[in-house]
Simulated assay, not measured.
Amino acid sequence: MEAKHYWREASLMMRVYVVCEGPTEETFVRNVLAPKLAHQQIFLTGRGVTTSRGHRGGALNYDRVKLFILNCLKEENATIITTFFDLYGLEKRFPGYEKSQAIIDVYQRTQFLEQALKDDIAQSNNTYLNRFVPYIQPYEFEGLLFSDISKLTDIHSEWSKALIKLQADRSDFETPEHINNSYETKPSERIKKALESVQIFASSKKSYRKTYHGPLAIQNIGIDKLCAECKHFADWYQQLTDLGTA
């Protein structure tokens, strides 16, 4: 994503709404990103898209996503709106989706989709252009855990038995963001299978719960490590930190 600078409020405080795919991403924003950026007077709030009546998370319907983003942009004219959606499972009606399938490089494909989303929102009102910073995570949130999988397996002692398998999965790919795009091979499925393979599910308290264990592992990994391992995430995070210097 091309880095851009955005204006700040006269109070030197920048408000950012992160439109999230589900509760896992909301928890990540609240527990990891928000405390880190608050020191720079950049205040992040995660907002989950309503995917059906009374529910948030799950498959993203683009009509609902677009309406949700536009409503957030209308609320306050100095607030930045960004997103945190997974590339995996993105609905085919998202802007640019069909054309994006011909793009082999995952970073180029993701950037193409982000720009298509930005352009579609701007068509509704071009004054939103400088306040909307779309972000799509290749291929999904759990890919970030592969930046240092030991931080996940450290959470419960039994999970250490899955470390070698998960590290082998990581070594097969250029970066955690390249861990690929099918139901059987997506990052979250690899984690689930690795943990199941060492039979650690005798206690439900120690089964993998993405909303709890995912953000907790990333909190232990740390933003610096994420940025070192995950280029696309690092570019987005730099855009957020740049808000404090605009």
Rank of each mutant, 00 (worst) to 15 (best):
T83S: 14
D242C: 01
E98R: 12
M1G: 14
Q111H: 14
D148Q: 11
Q238C: 02
S171I: 00
Q108L: 10
S203Y: 10
S150W: 03
C230F: 02
K151Y: 03
L70K: 14
D120Y: 05
F146C: 05
W7M: 06
L70I: 15
S171E: 10
Q115F: 05
Y17V: 13
V198D: 03
Q108W: 00
K225V: 15
M14C: 09
H156V: 06
H178T: 12
E91W: 01
K4D: 02
G46S: 04
Q111W: 12
V133C: 09
N61Q: 10
R30S: 13
T51E: 06
S204I: 10
F141K: 08
F94R: 01
E75D: 13
L243A: 00
L67A: 14
V32Q: 08
S171Q: 12
V18T: 05
C230D: 03
R209N: 14
A194G: 15
L37F: 15
L87R: 14
F43G: 00
L87A: 07
I155L: 15
R209W: 02
K4P: 00
V49T: 09
A59V: 03
V49W: 02
E25G: 08
H213A: 04
H5P: 00
G244C: 04
E75K: 13
L163F: 10
L37D: 05
V16Y: 09
S52I: 00
F85S: 05
T110Y: 07
I223S: 07
A34Q: 15
Q40A: 11
E184K: 14
L12C: 07
Y139T: 02
L12Q: 12
I218N: 03
L70H: 10
I200Y: 01
G58W: 04
R170Y: 08
G222D: 07
T175C: 02
S197A: 15
W159D: 08
E177K: 07
T83L: 08
F85K: 03
D172N: 11
G57Q: 06
L195C: 06
E98A: 14
Y107K: 07
I221L: 09
S182M: 05
I80S: 04
K165V: 07
K165S: 12
P138Y: 03
W159E: 07
T127H: 11
T27Q: 12
S204Q: 13
P215R: 04
A122T: 14
Y183S: 11
K66M: 12
S182Q: 12
L240Q: 00
E2W: 04
K99A: 14
K66G: 02
Y128A: 03
H39P: 00
E142A: 07
N220Q: 14
T27C: 07
F141S: 08
W236A: 01
P95C: 11
R93V: 01
E26A: 09
P23R: 13
S124L: 01
D224V: 10
F141I: 08
I136S: 05
T27P: 00
V19F: 08
E76G: 03
